[in-house]
């Protein structure tokens, strides 16, 4: 039986969630030798509006490339959390920004509430890298792709000249997730 992991990255347009999806898919498909698809859904606006990016990772064929039974949901806005949490499977992982998402649905999820945007803004000085901080959290908590592969994929996919900043943002996310894992172990 082949495995199929479904990840949805949701928030508002302009947060860089489509890029995160492509980095995850590249790490899985090119460096980890699995199959992966990335798809997206967004409105006609250049910025703002609901945006979602989906990644399917599998060791088998991926016929249907959209997510419908999520293993992981990242929600960077309350609206996204409200809209998509019902697609999470029981025991799935819900990762939210603690400031943007205050109301958490009370269901059988693993809820990971972290200061994603605050870390990007205050520790890295760039609000825009909140997407890659989120990626660090996803990779550390889910281990869906290898750390080495994701670092290669980040370097290959982010704009030239921003590799160092983005790798730092990734480390920041990994560190946030590690603290969370230590606090929630056992």
């Amino acid at each position: 039986m082949s495995f199929r992991q479904e990840i949805r990255l949701s928030g508002s347009g302009g947060q860089g969630l489509i890029l995160v999806g492509k980095v995850l898919a590249e790490a899985a498909a090119i460096y980890d030798g699995l199959n992966a698809t990335q798809s997206q859904s967004y409105g006609p606006e250049a910025r703002g509006g609901a945006s979602r990016s989906e990644v399917i990772i599998s060791d088998g064929d991926i016929e249907y490339p959209k997510a419908e039974n999520l293993d992981i949901l990242l929600a960077l806005t309350q609206e996204a959390c409200n809209k998509y949490h019902k697609d999470l499977k029981a025991g799935g992982i819900l990762i939210v920004d603690e400031k943007m998402v205050k109301t958490i649905p009370d269901k059988d999820y693993k809820v990971v509430q972290l200061p994603i945007i605050k870390s990007a803004t205050e520790r890295l000085g760039k609000f825009i890298v909140a997407n890659i901080v989120s990626l660090g959290i996803i990779v550390k908590i889910s281990e869906v792709v290898s750390e080495e592969s994701i670092r290669h994929a980040i370097k290959a996919r982010v704009p030239k000249g921003t590799e160092e900043l983005n790798l730092k943002a990734f480390d920041e996310g990994m560190a946030l997730a590690e603290e969370w894992l230590n606090a929630h172990s056992g």
Binding site: G21, T37, P65
Partner: peptide
């Protein structure tokens, strides 16, 4: 749009 905006190997 689905195939045109799909990213895969």
């Amino acid at each position: 749009e689905i195939i045109a905006h799909l990213t895969e190997k």
